[in-house]
Simulated assay, not measured.
Amino acid sequence: MRSSLALIATAGLVAVALTGCASTPASDEASSPGATSGRSSEAVAVTGDFGEQPKASFPTPLEPTESQCSVIVEGTGPVLAEGQLALVGFAVYNGATGEEIATQGFDETGPVPIAANNQPMVGFTKALTCAREGSRVAVVIPPEDGFGPNGNPSLQVEPTDSLVLVMDVTRAFPPRADGTPQLTRDGFPAVVLAPDGRPGITVPKADAPEELQQETLLEGSGEVVEDGDTVVVNYTGVLWDEGTVFDSSWENGAPATFTVGEDAQVIPGFSKAIIGQKVGSQVGVIIPPAEGYGDQGNAQIPAGSTLFFVIDILGVI
């Protein structure tokens, strides 16, 4: 998909089934991340090894007034922050009946990427933001943080039914590049970083280069990205002539995942800028039209546009 990097951001739940009928949170309180342990989550008993499909049992019906999270396996490292991407496996149950609804991430396809970014099912965000890499958590989700007032008839979830989620966080990706700052050439766009790592970009008032140019802004120390890898990145893209942002994973609320190289899911210049770089690096790249969207452009990008991207390389899946 080459029309917009944002469209290939994070994969998610048992896709349409679990998110298609979810409601938008009714208030800021309902959408705030994080959950703590409570009587409902502590009533969930989980068997099975971490990384393998769990089995949950609990008294029914569970009727929590807010999302609750109990840690089954502690994990290591910091608790995930809102906006971080993680690879997870999960099992979902109807909290009123005890019936299993869906599982994902425990078969041969492996764990799936999900972001803690207030997606339609807020309970998933709250589950992630009470977990660490290596954690298994049991989360009880009230209707307002789950499918909302309509429930989900296709999954036999009534409007008043809670959900029980058991989630294994097998890997957590950092929210920003953490490499060593590097000097850049004169005339290259200036990049300044906000405290959270979000880039601010100033494009020089000069004619755009005719060839692709890139600089390593932060030099990471992780593995080298190779042709065919699936990468996790945060990025911001601006139009050279206008200096305006046309797409940003930071603004979209979560890092993006895509394949680079011969079968890339992104424009050639973006892919070329990443291959050969180390995880933890931040790269700036000037992409001429021939390596971008060419003479066609798209809804956000005029035909013949030169682009500039700042890309944080967060990991390889």
Rank of each mutant, 00 (worst) to 15 (best):
M1N: 07
S3D: 13
S3V: 14
S3E: 14
S4P: 03
L5H: 08
T10A: 09
A11C: 10
G12W: 04
L13Q: 08
A15H: 14
L18H: 11
G20A: 15
S27I: 14
S32C: 07
S32H: 04
S32M: 09
G38S: 06
R39T: 15
R39Q: 13
S40H: 14
T47L: 00
A56F: 08
F58E: 02
L62M: 10
P64G: 03
P64S: 01
Q68Y: 05
S70R: 15
I72G: 03
V73L: 02
E74W: 09
Q84Y: 09
V88R: 06
G89K: 13
G89L: 10
A91C: 12
V92E: 01
N94L: 04
Q104S: 13
E108N: 07
N118K: 06
P120G: 02
V122T: 13
T125L: 01
A131C: 11
R132L: 07
E133F: 12
V137N: 08
V137D: 01
P142Q: 03
P143W: 04
P143N: 00
D145T: 07
G148P: 09
G148W: 09
E158T: 05
P159M: 04
T160C: 01
L163G: 00
V164Y: 03
L165A: 02
V166Y: 09
M167I: 13
T180A: 08
Q182M: 15
T184S: 06
R185N: 04
P189C: 00
V191I: 14
V192K: 13
L193V: 12
L193A: 10
P195E: 13
K205F: 06
K205P: 01
E211N: 14
L217R: 08
V224T: 15
V225D: 00
V225E: 02
G237Q: 09
L239Y: 11
D241W: 00
G243L: 10
D247G: 14
S248I: 14
N252G: 08
G253R: 05
T257G: 06
T259R: 15
D263Y: 12
A264M: 04
Q265D: 11
Q265K: 05
I267H: 09
P268M: 07
S271I: 12
S271T: 13
I275H: 09
I275R: 06
G276E: 04
K278Q: 15
K278A: 15
V279C: 02
Q282E: 01
V283D: 07
G284D: 09
I287D: 07
G292A: 11
G294T: 07
D295K: 14
G297L: 07
A299E: 12
I301L: 10
S305V: 08
V310F: 05
V310P: 01
V316I: 15
V316S: 04
